[in-house]
């Protein structure tokens, strides 16, 4: 997977409401609602309008979160977000 880069829609295209620790996320281009748990909202924020590969994503997230050794988990989340249409390959 390394080297593949991902991008998420600009933040202006995503509405978010916190619901007891989870996030109800409305994705404007698709008209779809997703209930997501961390780190999905954080991944989307880190990729919003700015492509990155997995390594770069880890670097961006590590500024605010402890993501040591979480690369494979992040890769799995990216696959899910891509299947949901929230993340794509630029």
């Amino acid at each position: 997977m390394a080297g593949l880069s991902y991008i998420a829609d600009d933040e202006s295209l995503v509405r978010k409401v916190e619901l007891d620790g989870l996030t109800a996320l409305f994705h404007v281009p698709s008209g779809m609602t997703h209930i997501v748990a961390p780190p999905a909202p954080q991944i989307l924020e880190a990729l919003a309008g700015r492509p990155a590969d997995l390594k770069e994503l880890v670097r961006r997230l590590s500024r605010n979160f402890d993501v040591d050794g979480a690369e494979s988990a992040l890769a799995a989340r990216l696959d899910e977000l891509e299947a949901a249409g929230l993340v794509s390959r630029p």
Partner: peptide, 24 residues
């Protein structure tokens, strides 16, 4: 929990998906 309420109400709605952002 709020997330559960949200999900249960979307399941209890026949037009939630069709309404888009205003429904959300």
């Amino acid at each position: 929990g709020q997330a559960e309420i949200f999900v249960r109400l979307t399941q209890a709605s026949t037009n939630y998906v069709a309404l888009g952002e205003p429904g959300y």
